[in-house]
Design a protein around this nucleic acid. Structure first.
Lengths: 137, 137
DNA sequence: CTGTATCCAAACCGATACTG
DNA sequence: CAGTATCGGTTTGGATACAG
């Protein structure tokens, strides 16, 4: 993995190299996992699925701020990435069970670590994730 | 914090409540931290800053895929959120030192957990984070 | 109940060019 | 070196309405 920008490579004077951080050793392990959790809500989905399998509507209640559209999108993406499984229970009315796969469960400790930080920061005021104001009209 | 969607609230028959997951107990601790790491590159910035303070150009080399514009944006956002500090060293040419704050260091373990998962998944092929194809023209 | 389709806004990102 | 300005493109997300 070439360690240099494509276009605007900055010329660092040889000898001023302070510390070669990205040495392919612990290069970008974040990238892989981040790819699995793309989108602001994917982590929440996995998180709420970590307790036990849940259904669409339950997840919707777990994450009030999410819209059905986005929840559906993330769910299908996570399914495609083998992070969760989708099981349709042919009842009336039909219901679906979403559950973490082995891969998905791998992510839980990481999310737990994040949640732990959140708890620790805790009480401090927390700016809402990313509220969008609807246009004034 | 009302546990119900604003508009499209789904009516779950009372008695079918499987498990009350989001009970304000371990509600959404992710949200707070996610807000700190908004954007696909913010985690990387914090991650590469976890070793030691680094300069703008160094971070740019650490994260080849990032553009100067976005790096600058994230840097200023993280500074505003008190995750990092910016110190301008009045030399010629001028240089700047970015360093994690106490808050920023809180995030490192969480990122380490993510990185650990990434390492564990490791060798498996990893779809690039979110490569954008430039337009064909 | 479980989604999907449209419409629209905002966040995010890269390339390039330019300033102090 | 350290940024910012501008431009255009992609991605994510909310609201609403509607379908199986």
């Amino acid at each position: 993995m070439a360690l240099r920008v494509r276009k605007n490579r900055v010329a660092i004077p040889a000898g001023v190299v302070r510390v070669k951080s990205a040495d392919a050793a612990h290069a970008c392990p974040l990238t892989r996992v981040m790819g699995l959790l793309s989108g602001a809500w994917a982590p929440h989905v996995v998180w709420y699925l970590s307790d036990q399998p849940r259904r669409f509507g339950e997840l919707r209640l777990d994450i009030p701020a999410i819209s059905a559209r986005v929840l559906s999108q993330r769910l299908r993406e996570l399914e495609a990435k083998k992070v969760i499984t989708r099981a349709v229970v042919p009842t009336t009315p039909p219901s679906t069970e979403y559950e973490l796969t082995a891969l998905g469960r791998e992510l839980v400790p990481a999310l737990a670590a994040i949640a732990a930080v959140g708890e620790k920061l805790g009480t401090e005021e927390a700016p809402p994730p990313r509220r969008r104001r609807r246009r004034a009209s």
